[in-house]
Amino acid sequence: MLVYEKNSLSEEIELLIERFGKDRVALLPILQIIEKRHNYISEFAQQEVARLLDIHPVEVYSVVSFYNFLHRYPQGKNIVRLCKTISCDMAGKQEIEKALKRELGINFDETTRDKKWTLEYTSCLGMCDQGPAMLVNDKIYTKLDPETAVKILNDTK
């Protein structure tokens, strides 16, 4: 990471601390925002958060690694999360799975070369009555078929 990138990240995190408070309870909201802006929480960002909250870097790392929606390595600009629970499975999840893999040319838990897409599974999305379902970034899509799933990818910038 370049020096000016580091500086701007530090500044960004300082602002977040100002907003959420210099307290451990602020940890998750801060991490969630960093994740959203950068598509992951870098080693440097984790150490900065630790320094400013006065906790150990390994504690931040430990928390980041616990939650599925936080990443310690760079992810694609868009994250597709396909529900793998049995209800979605019975509703045809496998076909969606195949279509997504084919369309993006990657497997699940992988990121495309152009860093635009990451494919992930997720536990139940709570859309069991309208499966198969997937979450693309913050948007939920239900009653998918392979064609609409691919269309959603194309419509998402």
Binding site: H56, Y61, S62, S65
Partner: peptide
């Protein structure tokens, strides 16, 4: 209070 080791993943 050194903070080298923690549990990771789940």
């Amino acid at each position: 209070e050194v903070g080298v080791l923690e549990a990771i993943n789940r």
